[in-house]
């Protein structure tokens, strides 16, 4: 057991899995000699060489297309997209090919690449280094979408993603890379894809969230607790396939739900969760489901604190929901 950051936990997962399975190859911009712009692949080039840690030309369409081809041939590529904001040149390949390959070939050609991409705001990176565009991928049948919020889950979920049979979009909240530390076991373990986790137990209000917002929600829950409101915080961890039982169970208990994400509001994941709750737990609801989200504007550079959900905004929503 050692105390690691998220970026170190990701590095560990890659190192250990690559050591066990030589069909795993990494592709991406600046991931080799430079060890990745966030250092997630630090040392891997030295350990596994240029044939398995491939610094690619600057073309996301090339990275994803080639990774898919490798997967068809039997390798297990893990592609890094330097920032989620730059994934769109490969969007056609992801949505039209990667997501549909198993389906349209009658199961003959399943592709199971992992696409790792740092996502989200909080680093003063402006609109092209801060986007939270998970909804595009969640909305696409055939893709799994994962977003860890702590080092333990980051390692376990990445190992699970690499071993999974389906394509996984593995989103890494970049502002947590070094700011969150935690104990991570040596050696391999998995955190199963498709399982949410209750990160704070509570009775009065359920907060559903994921990624960097888990920490904002926990902070708000603490403040709410001081005001006598007991808050349950659920880290969804996997966005697709969604653990809706965990959501419904919690709402059955509390009758009140707040959803928090930094992605824009309209058609953000909160919309789906809210709909699910009203479909599956309507009779348990004591208050309308509330969303605390990023706004429907591009991600603002100098007003990032205004844009992002804050502890204050989440606390406010918890209190309103509790007092409804």
């Amino acid at each position: 057991m050692s105390v690691l950051t998220i970026v170190q936990a990701i590095n560990k997962a890659l190192t250990e899995e690559m050591g066990k399975d030589d069909s795993i190859v990494l592709l991406g911009e600046d991931i080799g000699v430079n060890g990745g712009v966030f250092r997630a692949t630090e040392g891997l080039y030295q350990s596994f060489g240029p044939n398995r840690v491939i610094d690619t030309p600057l073309a996301e369409s090339g990275i994803i297309g080639v990774a898919m081809g490798m997967s068809l041939y039997g390798l297990k590529p893990v592609a890094e997209i330097q920032f989620l904001d730059f994934i769109y040149p490969a969007f056609d390949l992801i949505v039209n090919e990667l997501a549909k390959f198993r389906y349209r070939t009658g199961g003959q050609y399943p592709t199971h690449i992992v696409i790792r991409a740092p996502c989200g705001g909080g680093i003063k990176g402006g609109m092209y280094h801060s986007q939270s565009s998970e909804s595009y991928f969640i909305h696409t049948a055939g893709l799994k979408v994962v977003m860890p919020s702590n080092p333990y889950d980051a390692k376990g979920l990445l190992v699970a993603s690499i071993r999974d049979a389906d394509p996984v979009i593995f989103l890494e909240p970049k502002r947590l890379y070094r700011s969150v530390k935690g104990e991570v076991p040596e050696g391999s373990y998995t955190v199963p894809i498709g399982n949410a986790s209750v990160v704070a137990k509570g009775e009065d209000v359920s907060v559903f969230t994921y990624g960097a917002m888990v920490h904002v929600a926990l902070e708000a829950a603490k403040k709410a607790d001081e005001k006598g409101i007991s808050v349950e915080v659920i880290d969804l961890r996997t966005l697709s396939p969604l653990d809706f039982e965990a959501i419904v169970d919690s709402v059955r208990k509390t009758g009140r739900a707040v959803v928090v994400h930094e992605a824009p509001r309209t058609l953000g994941f909160g919309a789906e969760i809210s709909a699910l709750i009203s479909e599956k737990a309507f009779l348990h609801l004591e208050a309308p489901v509330t969303r605390v989200t990023g706004y429907d504007t591009p991600f603002h550079y100098s007003l990032e604190e205004v844009y992002l959900p804050s502890v204050g905004k989440v606390l406010n929503a918890i209190e309103k929901t509790a007092g409804f």
């Binding site: 402006g126 609109m127 092209y128 591009p298 603002h300 550079y301 100098s302 007003l303």
Partner: peptide, 12 residues
């Protein structure tokens, strides 16, 4: 990204 920026402080 300040108020005098003709592009209204939106871009990094």
């Amino acid at each position: 990204g300040n108020r005098n920026d003709a592009n209204k402080g939106r871009s990094f």
